[in-house]
Design a protein around this nucleic acid. Structure first.
Length: 211
DNA sequence: AGCCAGGCTACCG
DNA sequence: CGGTAGCATGGC
């Protein structure tokens, strides 16, 4: 199955997803179907960066609790993250797990954000931040900075394996390039496509891909 | 009661 | 290079 056909199939199953949820700019849980201009503000973009770190190997429901705690404590900018002590941040984000690791990672991405917000962010540069691997980097570039890079996650790998297009241990970059070389480089398309993989994977409905 | 969550680093052979 | 332990917590 081609990337285009797979996208159409997923969209027919689940429709518009409205990713990435940006609660500081969109009421409710932050999803904004068919609105592709968000986040617009510096705070909104940094919220996406924090969420990308916090959701590593963690259910989004837990990330929402951690973000709520940070916002209630008015820790919603990279500057606030940097000047808050580690113990305080670790306690606030504890619902999302890996509290000590993710506290360091949040400080690392905060410094990167301050240094790079006004530039055109570079993927290689972002990948040098400790705590930012390929999926996190691509999520930040695609959803915070609107750059057309494709996000690969475990659900994407499982889906492609279920369809027998690639096996599960195919390298990240191979999969990323397969999508990017066979689709138009469209930010809204890439945003929705990845969101649809997550929806399919969360519901474990891989069988729905077959006739 | 395990297994799983929208992974990453460090370290191993 | 590819493989894996450790990292924390809550829902199902």
């Amino acid at each position: 199955m081609s990337p285009v056909k797979l996208y159409k199939k997923l969209f027919s199953l689940y429709g518009a997803q409205g990713w990435w949820p940006v609660r500081s700019e969109f009421k409710g849980r932050g999803y904004h179907p068919n609105v592709f201009g968000l986040p617009k503000t510096r705070k909104g973009k940094f919220e996406v960066c924090m969420g990308a770190i916090l959701t590593q190997n963690t259910a989004w429901t837990q990330v929402e609790k951690a973000l709520t705690n940070l916002f209630n404590a008015k820790i919603n900018t990279p500057e606030k993250i940097l000047k808050t002590d580690n113990e305080t941040i670790a306690t606030l984000i504890s619902p999302a797990g890996y509290r000590n690791q993710k506290t360091k990672y949040l400080k690392n991405i905060a410094q990167w954000f301050i240094d790079n917000y006004r530039k055109e962010p570079s993927r290689d540069n972002l990948l040098q931040v400790k705590g930012v691997g390929r999926e996190t980097a691509d999520s930040i570039l695609l959803y915070a900075f609107h750059l057309p890079t494709f996000v690969i996650d475990t659900y994407t790998k499982r889906t492609l394996a279920a369809l027998k297009i690639f096996d599960e241990k195919t390298p990240y970059e191979t999969l990323r390039l397969w999508f990017m070389e066979n689709l138009e480089l469209s930010v809204p398309l890439f945003q929705e496509y990845h969101a649809l993989f997550v929806e399919l994977g969360k519901n474990r409905e891989y069988s729905k891909l077959f006739p």
